[in-house]
């Protein structure tokens, strides 16, 4: 049956391949390059993402590109951002230009991937795992009207994988503690959901040796690596760190650097 099924699937895929090849003989490489290049530049250099008109229109796919890439033409006129030089400032602390951890300078505006993007279907299907995205953004909580989180950017090392950092000051220590408790609960449910799929994940509330405050850390499997979320709270101040699989800068180093800058 395997052979029969393989033949059937191949026939379907082949029919589609032939149709696409016939419809796109000219290729659209230029249009893709114009779309991707500024994004790469932004990701590498921390330049804010450029608006890309006509890209990713729901349901349109790259049919929207057309052989001549007409629907992407607005992007052609969008200037590719000049990568701002990322200059390390050894005296900079979290939130200041040039903040450097583990020899990597922070790239403003860059965000790390979500759990669903890194882990895949199992995380995407879990409401609890999906909620980690909000905690990674330090969103919500009892005092949602104040203390909006600030995205500092991400440390993007040689691997290209990012370690994203956000800061937030809660209205009170109690609010921060409640937030951490909520995260602990949600992360635990995410772990349970993933374990139901046969995956090994971890979540725990911890105090880091030698550092004030406490943290909740969630580690989810992503291929041969892991995706990790750390939220560390000192008093009413919190830092959230998302570590993409294979990232060069470890969350603990970022926390230590943040604490050093925060408490001197």
């Amino acid at each position: 049956m395997s052979t029969q099924l393989k033949d059937m699937l191949t026939s379907v895929a082949e029919e589609e391949r032939a149709r696409v090849d016939a419809a796109h003989r000219d290729g659209d490489t230029d249009a893709y390059v114009r779309t991707i290049r500024p994004r790469r530049a932004a990701r590498r250099a921390g330049v804010a993402a450029v608006a890309l008109v006509g890209v990713g229109v729901a349901g349109a796919g790259y049919l929207a590109l057309g052989p001549s890439g007409t629907s992407l033409d607005p992007a052609v006129e969008t200037p590719t951002p000049t990568p701002a030089a990322l200059v390390s400032d050894p005296d900079a602390v979290a939130g200041e230009p040039g903040w450097t951890v583990a020899d990597v300078v922070i790239s403003p505006g860059v965000t790390a991937m979500t759990a669903a993007e890194a882990v895949g279907a199992a995380a995407a299907d879990s409401v609890a795992c999906g909620s980690l995205e909000s905690f990674a953004a330090l969103a919500g909580g009892t005092d949602a009207s104040v203390g909006a989180a600030k995205n500092l950017g991400a440390f993007v090392g040689e691997s290209g994988a990012a370690t994203g950092v956000r800061l937030r000051s809660f209205e009170s220590v109690e609010d921060a503690q409640t937030y951490l408790g909520d995260l602990e609960s949600i992360a635990g449910r995410c772990v349970t959901d993933l374990e139901g799929e046969g995956m090994q994940a971890r979540a725990s509330r911890i105090a880091l040796t030698g550092l004030p405050g406490e943290a909740v850390t969630a580690t989810l499997p992503a291929g041969e690596s892991v995706w990790r979320l750390d939220v560390h709270v000192i008093g009413a101040d919190a830092v959230a760190i998302v570590t993409e699989p294979g990232a060069d800068v470890a969350a603990l180093d970022v926390i230590a650097a943040w604490v050093e800058g925060a408490v001197g």
Binding site: V12, A13, R17, V20, G61, Y62
Partner: peptide
């Protein structure tokens, strides 16, 4: 690209979605 759309089509079951996925 054609082969990728063929692959995505098997998953998605319709052309716009398959092409969107590949894009």
């Amino acid at each position: 690209r054609g082969a990728l759309v063929g692959y995505a089509y098997l998953l998605a079951g319709d052309r716009p979605t398959a092409e969107d996925l590949v894009h």
